[in-house]
Design a binder for these strands. Structure first.
Lengths: 181, 181
DNA sequence: ACAGGCATGTAAATAGTTACATGATTCG
DNA sequence: CGAATCATGTAACTATTTACATGCCTGT
């Protein structure tokens, strides 16, 4: 049976220690969400599927009266996870409405086009800040890969914000030819 | 009525001159696809919706016996497009299976983790090449924005490939501490 | 008492891909 | 003639988001 990358996010999240769906969501939001997001609407049904497939196992772990199920990875699950990790990645997608608008910005005035770039810059520098705020937590862990990815995310957002800034000033420079040629 | 960004891609693509669904697909594949893709399954139904909404107008333009419909933007369509361009972008999404695998690479041997980075690097440098191959065409046009976005895409892929390379060597360096600290 | 966080889940809608069917035209 | 490309479309599926419903627990 073919699992989606989202299924492997979940599998990966429970592979270190058992977690509830709620915890998985919180973990995703604080780590993988900038390159792979997941909502409750995916997580809970997916956990059931994974349990049916024998890749995770649910156990009741209530907090007082509040019922709670934590899922642990099984041996089959670990094998499936490692097997997936060894296959070359296939999905690389981006949906960036800012770049899309910039692409069609010929229909706008120059200052309005620059405004798109400013929005994009704000977005990416904001995201960079958020990721930087997470860094100390990642630094404590012994696993170096989440930290590597996090730092990649920080660098990426900085690079992107810088590009936006450069393009913005290029656009607004008083000495403006149509093409640098 | 609220249109999806994909609807605006189509609107934007017919805004310069009338195009068939087939041509729109080809255009998207040669320009916006790296930050906003669209398939026939979206394009044809969306063209109908846009026509119903009065934002584009279809006209028969057969090639010999082969029927063909080209869609032109209407005044209402142009107004809608410009109006959308002036709103701040909202959608910034990424789905990168490579980063995801790297995130969980603690379950692999070091060389296997490096292999993920090599895959990613190949992917991004390949994409960069493809975009560079398109550049001459974009350079001919008078509209500077598609060129700006294209060059952004080239830079982005180069940056990403470079990051992968750096991380790969960091991982394989013989003088390896667990954390640089 | 009330807010906020913990916790689970689902229904409905939207988005998007893939695969297929059909047929014309063009070029070698 | 056969392959590639032009051209349109849809059905089925997969993926994903959003919004909602429900209720417990903790801290102020």
């Amino acid at each position: 049976m073919e699992l989606s990358p989202t299924a492997y996010v979940i599998l990966g999240m429970v592979s270190r220690e058992p977690r509830s769906g709620y915890e998985i969501k919180a973990l995703v939001d604080n780590s993988t969400r900038f390159f792979w997001a997941a909502s409750y609407g995916q997580i809970y049904p997916e956990l059931k599927k994974l349990a049916d497939a024998g890749l995770v196992e649910g156990a009741d772990a209530p907090t007082g009266e509040r019922k709670r199920t934590v899922y642990a990875i099984t041996e089959a699950g670990e094998a499936a996870l490692v097997d997936w990790l060894r296959q070359p990645p296939r999905t690389y997608e981006m949906r960036d409405e800012g770049l899309l608008k910039l692409f069609f910005a010929g229909a706008l005035r120059r200052e309005e086009a620059a405004e798109i770039l400013r929005s994009m810059r704000d977005h990416h520098s904001g995201l960079g800040e958020k990721l930087r705020a997470i860094e100390p937590k990642a630094l404590e862990k012994e696993d170096p890969y989440p930290l590597m990815v996090l730092r990649g995310g920080i660098e990426f957002n900085q690079w992107f914000a810088g590009w936006c800034e450069r393009m913005e000033s290029q656009l607004l420079e008083p000495a403006h030819e149509k093409r640098s040629s």
